[in-house]
């Protein structure tokens, strides 16, 4: 365990540093069948460097819309996204995205996929290769660098997608239920991978999930979003974020505190009848 990472987690302290990213009073309304739908109401949140924020909520609570607004794929009806002081309106290399499905370019090898953003930034070939190789090693895919995406399993593809987002060195990485499509065993190993990667890189991560346990096992802060209108129901620092770095995951998961916290969060999530 690296002590500097442990120190990095002693945040956030707004008085010390300015937030990296600010969500300022985000509203989103749209028309659907002549009905006005309020998808998001008044979402505000400061994100600091190294934060791992999990947005927890039932489907239809607007969490994916929120991610799209953050990425710049969609504009908010009201409110703005500020990244290091300037407004973020269009998708660009500052905000990385990992989608629910791996979304790799099927014609490029895993290595070339990871190099893509560097190529876009006109990074020299040798540097590109080295950087991509480093990140592939981080996600334990070095051996598969020269394969095409369709030759890999779902979990490996998603790890390659994470490496691709990391290689770009964005200010923040948005993840939209990235492990949702994976089987339970793979999902657990992916969570562990992601936890290690996050500790190593100290990247800010904005992670969407509907899995309470996943949120508790990954995040530093949990936002519970509820639907109609999409709003922040709870905003709590994850009490386990410290022990996740030092203790066995299994022990944490079996502790009374964890079970209680899980029940508390589940009780806060009000799903529509369709999803639960």
């Amino acid at each position: 365990m690296n002590t500097s990472h442990a120190l990095n987690l002693m945040k956030p302290d707004p008085s010390k540093s300015a937030p990296l990213i600010q969500l300022k009073n985000i509203h989103l309304t749209y028309q659907s069948n002549n009905k006005k739908v309020e998808a998001l109401r008044g979402i505000s949140q400061d994100i600091y460097e190294g934060d791992f924020i999990c947005v927890l909520g039932p489907s239809g609570c607007g969490k994916t819309s929120l991610l799209k607004i953050l990425a710049g794929y969609q504009s908010a009806t009201q409110g703005e996204i500020i990244i290091e002081g300037h407004k973020h309106v269009k998708p660009n290399a500052e905000v990385g995205v990992v989608f629910q499905h791996p979304n790799l370019f099927p014609w490029l090898t895993i290595q070339k996929n990871v190099e893509f953003s560097l190529k876009m930034a006109r990074v020299p070939k040798m540097v590109r290769r080295k950087t991509a190789a480093d990140f592939l090693e981080m996600v334990e895919l070095s051996k598969f660098a020269n394969m095409l995406p369709h030759e890999l399993s779902g979990g490996m593809k998603q790890r390659a997608a994470i490496a691709r987002a990391l290689a770009n060195d964005p200010k923040i990485i948005l993840m939209d239920e990235p492990f949702g499509a994976l089987d339970a065993l793979t999902r657990e190993s992916m969570q562990e991978h992601l936890r290690k990667i996050w500790q190593k890189t100290n990247k800010s991560i904005f992670f969407i999930t509907h899995d309470v346990e996943e949120a508790l096992l990954l995040s530093t802060r949990i936002l519970v979003l509820n639907a109609n209108p999409g709003r922040i129901e709870e905003n709590i620092a994850n009490p386990f974020s410290q022990s996740l770095l030092t203790k066995e995951i299994r022990d944490i998961r079996l502790s009374n505190d964890f079970v209680e916290m899980k029940e508390f969060l589940v009780s806060k999530i009000k799903g529509g009848p369709a999803e639960w």
Partner: peptide, 21 residues
């Protein structure tokens, strides 16, 4: 798929690069 275009833009692709690559 829209996500492929979105993904490329979030990796810093310019309009011409989006077309050719």
């Amino acid at each position: 798929p829209a996500d492929r275009i979105h993904g490329a833009l979030s990796l810093g692709a310019s309009k011409p690069a989006l077309f050719t690559q």
